[in-house]
């Protein structure tokens, strides 16, 4: 069993190690601090941050309803929420185009109002939020489902309002799931490629995020592509590492219950 586990780990690590070995270390710093690369990294971090915020605003209520409410069609609803996870990102990008594109379902009325989404940074954020929302919802819902709804009932019988129960009991209990879901969503946003390319376009400083930049420089400068790839891996490792820190223990503020 351990052997297969190690094989699985190697399967993930060997390609990443190969990337590190492929990097021209003598020129690593100039390659990754190239203005175009920094612009792309900055855009990636900004859009991923915004997209994660969108995911939190839309995803936490969705997760709360899925874990706490009982209603017909709940299983179907959960499956639908997972769809962006299973459709290829390119398909997601096309779907967004059909919805928000210039001649899309919602794009035409938006266009009439003077709002153009395609080829804008907004489109990048929409693409990233679309593909990463399921990660957040799954994580938060899982966390809420495993915590005892009994605490909430006790809080309610002790006179806490539903809002106070939510902020001081439910949310702290779900905090580990919320944090790891947020981090996963952020990481998925950073790596987004297919939907962005299809829906948002590719222009430096506007829509060219780091993954798109890597794919482009690969055409002419493989060394630079390898260096940037490693940079993206490093950022991802930092982000995921932060998500699994020892500080992520469920806790309830003493005075809440």
């Amino acid at each position: 069993m351990l052997g297969v586990a190690l094989l699985g780990l190697a399967f993930i690590l060997v390609p990443l190690l190969a990337t590190a070995l492929r990097v021209d270390w003598a020129h690593f710093v100039p390659l990754v601090t190239d203005p175009a690369a920094l612009e792309a990294l900055g855009l990636s971090l900004r859009t991923a941050g915004l997209s994660t915020l969108v995911c939190l605003l839309l995803g936490v209520p969705l997760a709360a309803v899925l874990s706490r409410a009982e209603f017909p069609g709940k299983r179907l609803m959960r499956s639908l929420v997972l769809l962006p996870l299973v459709v290829p990102p390119v398909v997601g990008g096309l779907a967004l185009l059909y919805a928000f594109g210039r001649f899309g379902l919602l794009g035409a009325p938006l266009h009439a109002l003077g709002v153009e989404i395609s080829f804008s940074t907004t489109a990048v954020v929409l693409a990233q939020a679309f593909v990463s929302l399921p990660y957040l919802v799954l994580s938060v819902e899982g966390s809420l489902s495993t915590t005892e709804a009994g605490y909430e009932r006790v809080a309610a019988t002790l006179g806490a309002s539903p809002a106070a129960t939510w902020w001081r009991v439910t949310l702290p209990l779900a905090l580990p799931g919320l944090l790891s879901g947020t981090v996963l969503a952020f990481a998925r946003c950073l790596g987004e490629f297919g939907a962005t390319l299809t829906f948002a376009g590719n222009l430096e400083g506007v829509t060219r995020t780091l993954p798109l930049d890597i794919y482009l420089v690969r055409e002419t400068d493989p060394d630079s592509a390898a260096a940037l790839a490693l940079l993206l891996v490093a950022v991802a490792v930092l982000v995921v590492g932060a998500a699994h820190g020892p500080w992520l223990k469920p806790r309830i503020r003493g005075n809440a219950v």
Partner: peptide, 21 residues
């Protein structure tokens, strides 16, 4: 000044065919 610099000619074609560009 393009609104997008695509990775391949088929991407350019797609953006025009869809009316986005």
């Amino acid at each position: 000044k393009p609104v997008s610099e695509e990775l391949s000619v088929s991407d350019v074609l797609g953006k025009v065919a869809s009316g986005e560009a």
